[in-house]
């Protein structure tokens, strides 16, 4: 057994088996296990969201933009100034990535442990049997009963309505993946047209792609996708980070901040008029992204 299996897969698989044994239903066990893991990784998610928010605020800070514009041709100096600002504001540029990287193996292990428990071939069953801890009675656990509601969690799911097999879970996967990606869009997501186009395409492709996976593979996997999507949305809602307006087509959207190109041009021109380099001092109190955007706009209009 390799280290990955020993540290992640084996304990998580055994916890999932234990939950299955306790609740006597694998479908409920998948839901509870996904909730448990999401709950345990909530501090990491919160940290990631907070850091991302701080970075976004900093990037919309007019002072930061001034620096960007001023040193756009001197990368070394720009990096030094950025570092100085990060330090002054107590922001680490990697602090939003680190929780994500820490979560990544946990989420992969969560997925893999669910797949392990859903062993449906002799080779998979024997491999599952090898990693069950001795204190769990293997004869009471294996095989796991895959029936949940109308589904056989080991087979692709179809709800038979008047002789037509409707892939309910796959449809739910498409809807929840789309809702999740839309609801988690920041208010400035559409600021840059090229980024907006790419994000828009991804928001259309990913739900369909995930839906196709759910349609083709076992229902247990689709159940995990749906639970995971809903839990992630719930997490973001609890943190006040859900962009509900983006889900409602007719809702009035927040005005996007001006694009970086406009800001850079404006500020660069502004700086051309200045005769000497002045020491850059952080402004206090720090304006919000939206107020920064408002401050920028009149100058552009004047030009």
């Amino acid at each position: 057994m390799n280290i990955w299996e020993l540290i992640f897969i084996q304990p998580m698989t055994n916890i999932l088996l234990l939950i299955t044994m306790l609740v006597k239903n694998f479908g409920i066990a998948i839901i509870l296990f996904t909730l448990l893991i999401k709950l345990l990784t909530m501090p990491l998610t919160a940290k990631m969201v907070k850091s991302r928010k701080e970075m976004a605020e900093l990037q919309n800070d007019p002072h930061y933009k001034k620096i960007m514009a001023k040193y756009k041709d001197d990368r070394e100096k720009l990096a030094m100034e950025q570092q100085r600002m990060y330090k002054e504001k107590g922001i680490s540029p990697f602090s939003s990535c680190l929780p994500m990287f820490l979560q990544f193996p946990i989420m992969i292990a969560l997925y893999q442990s669910i797949m392990r428990v859903m062993a449906s071939t002799p080779v998979e069953l024997l491999k599952l049997e090898r990693i069950v801890y001795p204190f769990l009675d293997i004869n009471k656990i294996i095989p796991v009963q895959n029936r949940f509601l109308w589904m056989d969690l080991g087979q692709p799911e179809r709800l038979n309505v008047l002789g037509i097999g409707i892939p309910v879970l796959a449809i739910l996967v498409v809807i929840t993946t789309w809702l999740q990606s839309k609801a988690m869009e920041g208010p400035d997501a559409n600021a840059d047209p090229s980024t907006a186009a790419a994000t828009g395409s991804m928001n259309k492709i990913m739900p369909l792609f995930m839906g196709y996976i759910a349609y083709q593979f076992s229902a247990g996997l689709a159940l995990y996708f749906v639970t995971s999507n809903l839990t992630t949305m719930l997490q973001y809602a609890l943190m006040g980070e859900m962009n509900w307006k983006s889900l409602i087509p007719w809702a009035k959207k927040d005005e996007p901040a001006p694009t970086n190109k406009v800001v850079e041009t404006t500020l660069a021109e502004e700086y051309e008029d200045e005769e000497e380099d002045e020491e850059v001092v952080p402004q206090s109190p720090r304006p919000s992204a939206r107020s920064a955007a408002r401050k920028m706009r009149p100058k552009k209009m004047k030009k």
Binding site: Q112, M115, S120, F209
Partner: peptide, 15 residues
Amino acid sequence: SLLSLILLAGCATGP
């Protein structure tokens, strides 16, 4: 999309 496909295909341990 390709990266997602590779990741999911790699993770998928079905029959």
